[in-house]
Design a binder for these strands. Structure first.
Length: 342
DNA sequence: TACCCGTGGTT
DNA sequence: TAACCAAGGGT
């Protein structure tokens, strides 16, 4: 891994946060971009949040970006830019939990903390047939003890890297190739033929939500966008004004009725035919794009005040706003329309 | 503790 | 296809 070349705590921290719940292949391009653009913690602390949000666009779990900036500013403000050197100090920073703090102590400082992510937990749980949910406290404790005992006097970082790699490449979650596994003869889960059930599968519930995005343009090729509020998913990202429904897509009459409750403007809708869905960690979002216009004699600006606060963005501004992958699909389509018409 | 939070790959 | 999963953390 690139951050192991110099073991710079800043780079190790950055990499571990980027890689939280994220595959290495997916996160690595972002890590490289961040190191290039923000070579040390003072550069990171100085960047405006809206700019960094754009840098983070497409990586997901956007709260990580906020916490990373908060932590960087803590390190600069409270420590003069000196990176923490103890597990406890790292743990106090926002966005740094037990895994990340341990990984930093091990990879940057070669200190003996147990680096137990989902890969390592799976390897240990199978080898010793640890029953139950590995995210619960008793199991975590047992895995911790097994890890320490197995590591013995091995190098903390070599052992951690070995287990991470072994979990990612050999002892994989789905359909592991136990026949080729060098540890098969030691594996209790294999002996008891329960490898596929250890650790137990997660249960994920997906709620369906239906978004009706409203494309509202003025006469100068500007479009109305709003910022998603705190307490919602994708909070802080920008989108076209949206009407959300939990049951199903609304028909145009239903949409008009919904809008009539929020604005006194008389409005018109026209479905663009553009539909797209995206699966999130706990939701499935279905979206359709509607052209929206206000009837003659009533300005769109009145609509903004009456319906939602927003900003009018031209093509150049639109490209700078951080958006979800779903909204990015509609944005790209809109940019194409603008290019064609001008 | 249980639930929330993105996106992309695999089966 | 739909489910499952990934170098987890916050609340």
């Amino acid at each position: 891994m690139p951050w192991m070349e110099d073991r710079d705590p800043y780079k190790v921290w950055l990499a571990e946060v980027v890689l939280q719940q994220t595959r290495v292949e997916q996160g690595l391009p972002y890590f490289r971009k961040f190191v290039q653009k923000y070579p040390d913690v003072s550069h990171l602390a100085a960047v405006e949040e809206s700019v960094f949000f754009k840098d983070w666009e497409g990586l997901g779990y956007y709260q990580r970006a906020r916490n990373l900036l908060k932590a960087a500013r803590c390190i600069v403000a409270q420590r003069g830019g000196e990176m923490p050197t103890s597990y406890e100090e790292w743990l106090r920073l926002p966005g740094v939990g037990p895994y990340t703090a341990a990984a930093i102590m091990v990879f940057a400082f070669e200190r003996p903390y147990p680096v137990i992510d989902s890969n390592v937990a799976r390897v240990l749980a199978r080898l010793w047939n640890v029953a139950g949910d590995v995210s619960r406290a008793p199991q975590r404790q047992e895995l911790h003890a097994l890890y320490e005992k197995w590591r013995g006097r091995h190098s903390p970082s070599d052992f951690a890297q070995a287990l991470l790699d072994f979990g990612a490449m050999q002892c994989v979650a789905m359909r592991p190739d136990c026949a080729s596994c060098p540890l098969q003869r030691y594996c209790i889960a294999h002996a008891r033929e329960v490898v596929d059930d250890v650790p137990p599968r997660r249960k994920t519930l997906k709620e369906q939500v239906y978004f009706h995005y409203l494309l509202i343009e003025d006469h100068r090729h500007r479009v109305l966008v709003t910022k998603r509020r705190n307490g919602t998913f994708w909070s802080g990202l920008y989108e076209f004004p949206v009407v959300e429904s939990k049951e199903a897509f609304l028909d145009e009459k239903g949409l008009i009725a919904h809008l009539a409750a929020a604005t006194t403007c008389r409005v018109m809708l026209h479905y663009t035919g553009l539909e797209r869905h995206q699966v999130l960690s706990h939701r499935r979002v279905h979206a359709r794009l509607y052209r929206f216009s206000v009837l003659e004699g009533v300005g769109e600006h009145d609509f903004i005040q009456q319906y939602k606060q927003g900003i009018w963005a031209d093509a150049a501004q639109m490209k700078l706003l951080p958006m979800s992958r779903l909204m990015d699909f509609f944005r790209q389509w809109w940019l194409g329309q603008i290019t064609q018409s001008s």
